[in-house]
Amino acid sequence: DRYEFNINGVHFTIDDAEEELIKLIEELLKRGARAEEIEEVIRRWER
Protein backbone atom coordinates (compact mmCIF):
# COMPACT_ATOMS: atom_id res chain seq x y z
CA ASP A 1 0.00 0.00 0.00
CA ARG A 2 1.04 3.59 -0.55
CA TYR A 3 1.37 5.67 2.60
CA GLU A 4 1.46 9.46 2.41
CA PHE A 5 1.96 12.06 5.12
CA ASN A 6 3.18 15.62 5.66
CA ILE A 7 5.62 17.05 8.18
CA ASN A 8 5.81 20.83 8.36
CA GLY A 9 4.67 21.13 4.76
CA VAL A 10 7.08 18.44 3.49
CA HIS A 11 5.21 15.69 1.63
CA PHE A 12 6.34 12.08 1.98
CA THR A 13 5.18 9.04 0.02
CA ILE A 14 6.21 5.47 0.78
CA ASP A 15 5.23 2.79 -1.71
CA ASP A 16 4.62 -0.71 -0.34
CA ALA A 17 4.76 0.59 3.23
CA GLU A 18 4.66 -2.17 5.80
CA GLU A 19 2.10 -1.88 8.59
CA GLU A 20 4.83 -1.80 11.25
CA LEU A 21 6.60 1.11 9.54
CA ILE A 22 3.34 3.06 9.27
CA LYS A 23 2.66 2.56 12.99
CA LEU A 24 6.20 3.67 13.82
CA ILE A 25 5.90 6.83 11.70
CA GLU A 26 2.51 7.69 13.19
CA GLU A 27 3.94 7.31 16.70
CA LEU A 28 6.84 9.61 15.79
CA LEU A 29 4.41 12.16 14.34
CA LYS A 30 2.39 12.12 17.58
CA ARG A 31 5.58 12.88 19.49
CA GLY A 32 6.35 15.79 17.19
CA ALA A 33 9.38 14.28 15.47
CA ARG A 34 11.18 16.41 12.90
CA ALA A 35 11.20 15.47 9.22
CA GLU A 36 14.91 14.57 9.41
CA GLU A 37 14.26 12.10 12.22
CA ILE A 38 11.52 10.36 10.29
CA GLU A 39 13.62 10.26 7.11
CA GLU A 40 16.37 8.52 9.09
CA VAL A 41 13.90 5.94 10.44
CA ILE A 42 12.67 5.23 6.90
CA ARG A 43 16.23 4.88 5.58
CA ARG A 44 17.13 2.42 8.34
CA TRP A 45 13.92 0.46 7.77
CA GLU A 46 14.59 0.05 4.04
CA ARG A 47 18.06 -1.47 4.61
Rank of each mutant, 00 (worst) to 15 (best):
E20F: 06
L29R: 06
F12W: 05
A17I: 06
E46L: 06
E37T: 08
I14C: 02
L21Y: 02
E40S: 11
E19N: 06
I7S: 05
V10P: 00
I38K: 00
E40L: 08
A35N: 06
L29V: 10
E20N: 07
F5M: 05
K23C: 04
I22M: 04
E18D: 14
I7F: 03
I14Y: 02
E18L: 04
E39A: 11
W45E: 08
E4A: 01
L21H: 02
A35P: 11
E46C: 04
I7C: 03
L28A: 14
E19T: 10
I42Q: 00
H11L: 13
E27S: 12
W45C: 05
E37D: 10
I22Q: 03
K23N: 13
A35C: 06
H11A: 08
E36T: 09
I38S: 00
R31V: 12
D16R: 09
N6R: 02
E4Q: 03
D1G: 15
R43D: 11
E27F: 11
A35M: 12
R47S: 15
Y3P: 03
R31H: 12
R34C: 10
D16L: 11
E27Y: 09
G9Y: 01
Y3I: 02
D1H: 13
Y3T: 02
W45Y: 13
A17P: 14
E40H: 08
A33W: 04
E4P: 00
I42Y: 04
E18N: 11
L21T: 02
E39W: 14
E19F: 11
R47D: 13
I25F: 02
F12L: 05
G9F: 01
D15Q: 06
L29A: 05
E46N: 07
R34W: 09
E26F: 08
L24C: 10
G32P: 06
I14D: 01
G9P: 00
I7M: 04
E26G: 07
T13F: 15
R34N: 14
I42W: 02
I25M: 03
R31T: 11
E18R: 02
N6D: 15
I7R: 01
E37P: 00
I22P: 00
N8I: 01
G9V: 02
I25V: 08
V10Q: 11
K23V: 14
V41M: 08
T13S: 13
L29P: 00
E46Y: 08
E4C: 05
L21C: 03
I38E: 00
L29W: 04
E19Q: 11
I38Q: 00
Y3N: 01
I42M: 07
A33K: 05
E40M: 09
A17W: 04
R2I: 12
R47K: 14
E39D: 07
A35W: 10
R47P: 12
I14S: 01
L24W: 08
E39F: 15
V41I: 10
R43L: 13
N8R: 01
F5W: 03
E20V: 07
K30R: 11
R47M: 11
R2F: 08
I42P: 00
R31G: 11
I38T: 00
E39I: 15
N8P: 01
F5D: 01
R44M: 14
W45L: 05
I7V: 15
Y3V: 02
E4R: 01
A17R: 04
A33M: 05
R31W: 06
D16I: 12
F12E: 01
R47V: 14
K30D: 11
N6H: 13
N8T: 03
G9L: 03
E40K: 10
D15L: 09
W45T: 07
N6Y: 12
E20C: 09
D15G: 03
R44F: 13
D16E: 14
T13P: 02
R44S: 15
L24T: 12
E36Q: 12
R2Y: 09
A33E: 05
A35K: 09
R47L: 12
R2W: 06
E40F: 06
I7A: 07
I14K: 01
I25T: 01
E19P: 15
A17S: 07
D1E: 12
R47T: 14
D15R: 02
K30F: 14
H11E: 13
D15W: 13
A35G: 05
R43V: 12
N8M: 05
A17V: 06
A33S: 11
V41W: 05
E46H: 11
I42V: 07
R2T: 09
D15A: 07
A33G: 07
I14F: 04
R34Q: 15
I42N: 02
L29E: 02
R44V: 09
E40P: 03
V41D: 02
E20H: 06
I38Y: 05
E39L: 15
H11S: 11
K30A: 12
G32T: 05
E19I: 12
E4N: 03
E27I: 13
R43K: 12
E46A: 09
E46T: 08
E36R: 08
Y3R: 01
F12A: 01
E4M: 01
E18P: 15
E20T: 10
L28R: 07
L21S: 00
W45R: 07
I42G: 00
R2G: 09
E19Y: 09
L21A: 01
E27V: 13
E37A: 07
T13M: 12
E27N: 10
I38D: 00
E37W: 05
E37Q: 10
L24I: 13
N6A: 08
G9Q: 02
R43I: 11
K30G: 12
L28G: 07
E46M: 06
N6K: 04
F5L: 07
G32R: 05
L21R: 00
E46R: 09
G32I: 02
I22T: 03
A33P: 08
R47I: 11
F5A: 03
R2C: 09
E37S: 06
I22K: 05
G32S: 11
R43S: 11
L24Q: 14
R31D: 10
E26H: 08
I22L: 04
G9T: 02
R31Y: 11
D15S: 06
R2H: 10
A33H: 05
I38W: 02
A33D: 04
Y3L: 03
E36L: 07
I22Y: 03
D16Y: 15
I25Y: 01
V41S: 08
G9D: 11
I7D: 01
A17Q: 05
G32V: 04
R43G: 08
A33T: 10
R44H: 15
E40R: 08
F12C: 03
G9C: 02
F12P: 00
E4W: 03
I42H: 01
R44D: 15
L24D: 07
E26S: 06
L28P: 00
I38R: 00
D15F: 14
V10R: 04
G9I: 02
I22S: 01
F12M: 06
V41G: 03
